[in-house]
Design a protein around this nucleic acid. Structure first.
Length: 425
RNA sequence: GUGGGAGUAGCUCAGUUGGAUAGAGCAUCAGGUUGUGGCCCUGAGGGUCGUGGGUUCAAGUCCCAUCUCCCACCCCA
C-alpha cells in the first residue's frame, strides 16, 4: 500500500459513503422543519473579517481569545474562519438591508464552523451547525418559537430524552447591577474560588454561576439571585416566554445558573442537553441578542437564534440506537457472458435515462464474478445479455431476492420493469 | 493550553523475559472446467510494526522526542 504522508488535519474528518447519508438525513429534517417554521436559508462565507467576530462575539470570550482560526490573506487583511454562525448572518442582514424587508426576517443556515480546540468526544475543530435566526422583533412568542423549533427538531429525529434548560440573563440595564451585587457577595470568599473563577470574578462575574467546581457552588449557594435584580421588562419578558412555551407544549426547566459563554446574549438564554454523550452533552444552545446588531454596526434591532451541533446530534442518535431511514436505490445490474459489453453499456445507459439506476461490470470480469459483485452492491435485478439473448433479441431478468429468472423481449423490457416497480410501490 | 490512555495489513486484533523471511479473522481480487451471486474450499495482493533518534550482536518488543487518535480539564455545538 502507498503510505500517505498527509492526513486530514487534527480535529477534522472525512465523511465517507455510508456516513454521509446520515448527515443528509439530519440536514433534510432541519431544512423541512425550517420551512414549516417559515425560515429561509442563507449562505454566508466560511471566512469573514476578523473584526466581525471581535465585535460580535466579544473579545473577552474564550472563542475569540484562544479558539479562532485567524490568518492574514495575501492582501494583508486579517481573516478568520467563522467560529459560529450568528455574527455572519447579522453582518449579511445589515449589508443587504434586510431590515427594509417585512420583519421579522427569519433565516436558517447549515454549515461548517471552526474552532481551535483540543478535540474530544463530540468536539472537533471543524464542526457543523444548523442554526436559525430571527431579526426585528422582541416579542416573547418569538423566543418561544425558537425554542419550540429546537424541541421539534429533536422530537422529529427521535431524540426524545433531551432536556431544555432556560434562563434570562437580563439586559444591559439590569445585568450589570446584578453583576456588581454578585461580585460584592463573592469577594470575601475569592480565596476559595477555583482558579478560573478567580479570573472570572473581575471580568465576567455571571460566569461564576455555571462553574462546575463544587467549592464554587457552595460559595454561591446563598448568593443573590439574578431574578431579584431583573428589571420589570426583563422579568415580564421571561415570564411570557415561559407561558408561550407552555402553550406550545415544550417542557423546559428554568435554570437560574445557566449563563452561556457568548457575550451577546440578552434576556432569554437556553441550552439543550442530551444525557449519555460524555462531557460534551450540550447539543444546542441559543438565546436572544438584542444588542448584537448594533454592536456589529447597525441600528438597534433585536434578534434571537439557536445553533444545533450536528456532530453531537449524530452522536446522540448513534448512542441511543435511533434508526435512520436511508433509502438505497434499486440497482439493475447488466451482466454479460463473454462478448456483448457494448450492448451492456447501451442497455445500462438506456435504463439510466429511463429512470432506472443501473450498473455494469467495469473490470472485464467473468459472469460469475459479475454476479458476485451485483449481489454485493445489493442489486435488485440482474439483466443478463448472453450470446443467446443477443441472438434472439432478449434479456434474462434475474430477481436477486428470489433467484427466479425469466426471458424477456428487449422491446418489452421497460414495460416489465415499470410494472415490477409499480407493483412494489 | 493542561492531564491520562493508545498507535502492528483496508478493518478488528495476536505477537512470550528483546532473537530467524511479522501472523490470524474479516474485507479485496482471482480460481474451484464451457453462461449465474449469497454458503463452502483454494490461492494471491497488501505492512520500512505512526514518524525520527537512541540503547543493543540483535528492537514490533526497552528509552527519548514528535505526530495522530481516544478520554477528561477548560470551553462549547
Amino acid at each position: 500500500m502507498i503510505l500517505l504522508a498527509i492526513s486530514a488535519p487534527r480535529g477534522t474528518k472525512d465523511l465517507l459513503p455510508g456516513e454521509v447519508e446520515r448527515w443528509q438525513y439530519i440536514e433534510q429534517v432541519a431544512r423541512d422543519l425550517s420551512r414549516s417554521y417559515g425560515y429561509q436559508e442563507i449562505r454566508t462565507p466560511i471566512f469573514e473579517h476578523t473584526e466581525l467576530f471581535l465585535r460580535g462575539i466579544g473579545d473577552a470570550t474564550d472563542i475569540v481569545q484562544k479558539e479562532m482560526y485567524t490568518f492574514k490573506d495575501r492582501g494583508g487583511r486579517s481573516i478568520t474562519l467563522r467560529p459560529e454562525g450568528t455574527a455572519a448572518v447579522v453582518r449579511s442582514y445589515l449589508e443587504h438591508h434586510l431590515d427594509t424587508q417585512p420583519q421579522p426576517v427569519k433565516l436558517y443556515y447549515i454549515g461548517p464552523m471552526f474552532r481551535y480546540d483540543r478535540p474530544q468526544a463530540g468536539r472537533y475543530r471543524q464542526f457543523h451547525q444548523v442554526g436559525i435566526e430571527a431579526f426585528g422583533s422582541n416579542d416573547p412568542s418569538l423566543d418561544a418559537e425558537i425554542v419550540s423549533f429546537t424541541w421539534d427538531y429533536f422530537q422529529k429525529l427521535g431524540l426524545t430524552d433531551i432536556q431544555v434548560e432556560i434562563n434570562s440573563v437580563g439586559c444591559p440595564g439590569c445585568r450589570p447591577v446584578y453583576g456588581r451585587a454578585l461580585q460584592r457577595f463573592v469577594e470575601p470568599y475569592s480565596g476559595s474560588l477555583c482558579d478560573f473563577c478567580r479570573d472570572r470574578l473581575a471580568r465576567n462575574p455571571l460566569r461564576l454561576l455555571d462553574c462546575k467546581d463544587t467549592g464554587c457552588q457552595e460559595i454561591l449557594a446563598d448568593a443573590p439571585r439574578l431574578k431579584d435584580y431583573m428589571c420589570d421588562d426583563c422579568r415580564m419578558h421571561f415570564e411570557k416566554v415561559q407561558n408561550y412555551l407552555q402553550v406550545a407544549g415544550v417542557p423546559v426547566t428554568v435554570n437560574e445558573k445557566l449563563v452561556r459563554g457568548l457575550d451577546y446574549y440578552t434576556n432569554t438564554a437556553f441550552e439543550v442537553t442530551c444525557p449519555g454523550l460524555g462531557a460534551q452533552s450540550s447539543v444546542a444552545g441559543g438565546g436572544r441578542y438584542n444588542n448584537l446588531v448594533e454592536t456589529v454596526g447597525g441600528p438597534s434591532i433585536p434578534g434571537i437564534g439557536v445553533a444545533i451541533g450536528l456532530e453531537r446530534v449524530l452522536l446522540a442518535l448513534e448512542k441511543k440506537g435511533v434508526p435512520i431511514p436511508i433509502e438505497a436505490p434499486e440497482i439493475i445490474f447488466v451482466a454479460t457472458a463473454g462478448e456483448g459489453d457494448f450492448e451492456a453499456f447501451r442497455l445500462m445507459t438506456e435504463l439510466r435515462r429511463g429512470g432506472f439506476p443501473a450498473e455494469k461490470d467495469f473490470l472485464g470480469r467473468s459472469l460469475k464474478a459479475q454476479m458476485k459483485s451485483a449481489g454485493r452492491m445489493g442489486a435488485r435485478y440482474v439483466l443478463l445479455l448472453g450470446e443467446e439473448e443477443l441472438r434472439e433479441g432478449k434479456v434474462t431478468l434475474r430477481d436477486m431476492t428470489s433467484g427466479t429468472q425469466t426471458a424477456i423481449k428487449r422491446e418489452e423490457l421497460f414495460k416489465v420493469l415499470a410494472e415490477l416497480r409499480n407493483r412494489r410501490q
